[in-house]
Design a protein around this nucleic acid. Structure first.
Lengths: 200, 200
DNA sequence: CCTCCTAACGAACGATCGTTAGGCAGAAGA
DNA sequence: TCTTCTGCCTAACGATCGTTCGTTAGGAGG
């Protein structure tokens, strides 16, 4: 059921287990002792590896954010190399990259999407900024496509938000052992997204 | 900022305040004393009106579920009256109904979408069943549209899930005092949805 | 053998959690 | 005026929370 991995470090194992529990029950409803229990340890023993509970959440959210950012950056660069300035290809690449990150680690992605609210004020604000910058990648490409007439919609802000809602939703229903492989899920979402934007 | 309403009953006021706090901080992170404090009461005083914390959550979720179900039922009936069996009109009506419920009470809708996981096993299972029955309304209409060739997509299950992800996302970004009135938001989402499904 | 390090342990702290119990002020009805 | 009910209060319960602390078992290096 759950993939067994040789953990690179104890710290990383803690974050992986925490991702899973945070996704299933939420940050607030998951106790330090729950996380420790899943690793056959006592609660306080975690503090040899971690400085606070929020610290664990932050590590997960920060890493997930970085994964989304890197994947999107790479996707845009490659799309521009091969189809310079083509908004359709750029959006397709962004969607595929996003779905890839989500399906690559559903737990981490879910936590990033839903649990960042539990962070303290400064970190929450930082995450909000990064989310907006990330969404702006999509918004910009949609705007480009409208400008050259390949997209038939009128409001790029709403379109970008709707697209990202749909993409983030994948984290809630994708099952690595389910009917559809990750690549097929990405195919479907690219198709639906482009169809939604297309001019006819 | 927050609309001031003459509350029908103390019980209802508690649920409204709880909706708001659950939406902002989540069920687990909201204490009975937080809810009471927002009503200028002491925590234990709530138990004169409410039998448990989960009871409050359940009341909110159950009412929200009922609102979605009633709105969808009415929308489908009206669509079938006027455009019997037209999947395009039916989907448009379902989308408009869903957005209407969400924008009508963002707090309640958010709690319904995100916090049902915090319910006990029986109630959570019941909500899951109702969610699936609700999603099936969309899935069925999408399937109908594919069958008669007005929709050009291939996987009705994914399409229905993606649509609902996007619609539920509205609860996360819609602002009653924002740039777009609820009706305009509904217009955009109907347009985007139909475009996403359409055969060309 | 001694020392140091790692990784965990169990006890315990203060705070907060949901919840129960009992009391008190004021309005309502006899 | 006396009683009853309503709505809220304070005190307090046991449980659990995140976290700190001192300690211990075991292995590595000298």
């Amino acid at each position: 059921m759950v993939q067994v991995v040789v953990e690179a470090s104890r710290r990383r194992a803690i974050e992986d287990v925490a991702s899973d529990l945070f996704r299933k029950h939420g940050y607030a409803a998951t106790s330090i002792r729950d996380i420790a229990g899943a690793l056959s340890m006592q609660g306080p023993s975690l503090y040899a590896h971690v400085s606070s509970k929020e610290d664990v959440l932050w590590a997960i959210v920060d890493r997930a954010a970085g994964r989304f950012e890197n994947a999107a950056q790479l996707a845009e660069e490659r799309a521009d190399e091969r189809h310079a300035g083509d908004p359709v290809e750029a959006i397709a690449a962004l969607v595929r990259a996003h779905v890839g990150v989500v399906t690559g680690d559903v737990g981490e992605a879910s936590v990033f999407v839903h649990e960042w609210r539990a962070l303290g004020d400064d970190r929450r604000a930082a995450v909000l900024d990064r989310r907006d910058a990330y969404e702006a990648r999509f918004r910009r490409r949609v705007t480009d496509g409208i400008a050259i007439g390949v997209f038939g919609i009128t409001d790029p802000a709403i379109a970008a938000t709707v697209i990202l809602s749909a993409l983030n939703g994948v984290a809630s229903w994708y099952d690595p052992n389910g009917r559809l492989a990750a690549e097929r899920v990405a195919d479907h979402l690219v198709g639906l997204t482009l169809r939604m934007l297309s001019s006819e």
